[in-house]
């Protein structure tokens, strides 16, 4: 259900209709931005934004910090495992 894919906004194509061009790995498509713009974040602020694209609409602005945080949690989990393994190996556990 609900196929969505991250893409980057490269150009505003129609201000009145809130349309913009998105780039997904070199593939371009005009999409509707109505769901990701508001008074705090206007259409013209969207160039360079990463959004989640679903059926020709940007449905969410991707939160870069949160993405990094999710990866960091997993990174640290891995490091912790390594430490435990090292401790076991050296007979400390």
């Amino acid at each position: 259900m609900c196929l969505g894919i991250p893409g980057q906004i490269i150009e505003i194509t129609d201000e009145a209709r809130k349309l913009a061009m998105v780039d997904v790995s070199g593939v371009h498509r005009e999409i509707n931005m109505a769901c990701v713009v508001n008074d705090d974040h206007r259409l013209n602020d969207c160039i360079g934004d990463w959004v989640l694209v679903h059926v020709g609409f940007a449905m969410s602005r991707i939160n870069e910090e949160e993405a990094a945080l999710t990866l960091k949690v997993l990174e640290e989990l891995g490091e912790a495992q390594e430490e435990i393994a090292a401790m076991r190996a050296s007979g400390q556990m």
Partner: peptide, 12 residues
């Protein structure tokens, strides 16, 4: 190639 991957991701 990455463009083909992107194309496939968009259309499933």
């Amino acid at each position: 190639r990455s463009d083909v991957k992107g194309f496939c991701e968009i259309l499933g």
